[in-house]
C-alpha cells in the first residue's frame, strides 16, 4: 500500500538531511506507527508521502501512485489529519466539512454523521472560530475521513484531547482499520501507538533505527520483571524481582512463601523505555 525506498529530504537542498535513507513498506490494512521526538523527521517523511513536500531523492509510492509525479487523483484515496488543527474559522463546522467534501471526485460521507461521531453535531452550525482547541482538532480529524480514505495519515490524533474523546478517536481508528483502512500514525504517545499499531518505526535524527511490532519489541528489549508490594513491620515495601536472574527468583520464591504480599504484577517494558534504550534519547 505504501512503499518508501531510499528516501532523503533536505530543506536546504544540500547534504543536511532531515530524512536520511528511510526504507519501509506498509501492507494494506496495517496500522503503522512512526515514533520519534520533535525534529526527528516524522513530519518530513509524512510530508513527502502526502505530497506536501516534493520528493527529492528515493522512491515513494502511495496506493500505487508514484509521489514524484504528484498526481492529484491520489488524494481521493487518502485522508490526512494534521497535528495542528486547520479549519476555516469563519465557517461553521458543517460548512467546513461541506466545502471540503466538494473537492473530492468520489462519494463522501455525510458531514452530520461525522460530526455526530466525535460529539460535534450539537455545534454543527457554530463557527469553527468559536471552538476550543480540542473541538477544532476533532473537526480536523473527521474532515480527513470525508472521502472514506483507503490510506489514512494521522498526525498526533489524540493530542490535546480529554481522555474520553481520545478513547473515542482510538476506537474510530480501530473501526476504520477493521473496515480495511491502512493507517500511518505519527505520534509521541506511546500508549496510543502500543494500542493501535501493528508495527512501529523509531526515527531519530532523520534515520529509522528499527521497525518491528510492539510485541516483538517488548519481547526483545523488555526485561521480565515482577513488582511486589508487601508488608514489612507496619509499612508497605515495593520491590522488583527479575524473572531471569536466579537470585531474584529465589528471593521472590521466599517472599511468596513467607511474606505478606499486598499486590503483585508483572511489569513489561513500555515502548517509551524501549525507544530510549534503542535510540539513547527521550521522546520530547
Amino acid at each position: 500500500m505504501i512503499k518508501v525506498q531510499g528516501l532523503y529530504h533536505s530543506y536546504t537542498h544540500d547534504h543536511v538531511y532531515a530524512v536520511k535513507n528511510a526504507n519501509f513498506e506498509i501492507a494494506p490494512g496495517e496500522i503503522f506507527g512512526f515514533l520519534g521526538p520533535s525534529g526527528a523527521g516524522k513530519s518530513t517523511t509524512q510530508g513527502v508521502m502526502t505530497g506536501l513536500l516534493p520528493l527529492q531523492q528515493g522512491v515513494v509510492q502511495v496506493a500505487g501512485y508514484d509521489m514524484r509525479l504528484r498526481q492529484r487523483e491520489l488524494f481521493n484515496k487518502i485522508g490526512v489529519s494534521f497535528e495542528q488543527s486547520n479549519v476555516y474559522s469563519k465557517l461553521t463546522a458543517l460548512e467546513n466539512l461541506e466545502f471540503y467534501g466538494k473537492l473530492f471526485d468520489v462519494p463522501t460521507l455525510d458531514p452530520m454523521q461525522l460530526l455526530h461521531l466525535v460529539g460535534l453535531d450539537g455545534v454543527a452550525k457554530n463557527k469553527a472560530g468559536t471552538f476550543s482547541k480540542g473541538m477544532k482538532h476533532r473537526l480536523t480529524f473527521i474532515r480527513s475521513m470525508l472521502n472514506n480514505p483507503a490510506i489514512w495519515f494521522l498526525d498526533e490524533p489524540t493530542t490535546g484531547l480529554d481522555p474520553a474523546i481520545s478513547r473515542k478517536i482510538i476506537e474510530i481508528v480501530k473501526d476504520k482499520n477493521a473496515e480495511g483502512a491502512t493507517v500511518f500514525l505519527t505520534t509521541h504517545n506511546m500508549q496510543v501507538a502500543d494500542e493501535l499499531c501493528h508495527r512501529v518505526a523509531f526515527i531519530i535524527d532523520g534515520e529509522i533505527k528499527l521497525i518491528d511490532s510492539p510485541r516483538n519489541l517488548k519481547l526483545q528489549f523488555g526485561e521480565k520483571i515482577v513488582v511486589v508490594d508487601h508488608r514489612v513491620d507496619d509499612t508497605t515495601k515495593r520491590e522488583q524481582f527479575s524473572l531471569v536472574k536466579p537470585d531474584d527468583m529465589a528471593r521472590l520464591q521466599t517472599l511468596l512463601q513467607t511474606g505478606k504480599i499486598e499486590m503483585m504484577h508483572t511489569k513489561e517494558a513500555t515502548l517509551e523505555e524501549i525507544f530510549i534504550q534503542v535510540t539513547g534519547r527521550g521522546l520530547l
Binding site: 487523483e73 488524494f75 490526512v80 486547520n86 476555516y88 471540503y100 473537492l103 471526485d105
Partner: peptide
C-alpha cells in the same frame, strides 16, 4: 492570508484539487 493563518492551505494541498 486567511488560508495561511489557519493553515488550511495544507488541507487544500492534500485534496484532489489541481
Amino acid at each position: 492570508v486567511e488560508e495561511k493563518m489557519s493553515n488550511t492551505l495544507s488541507a487544500i494541498n492534500v485534496a484532489p484539487l489541481h
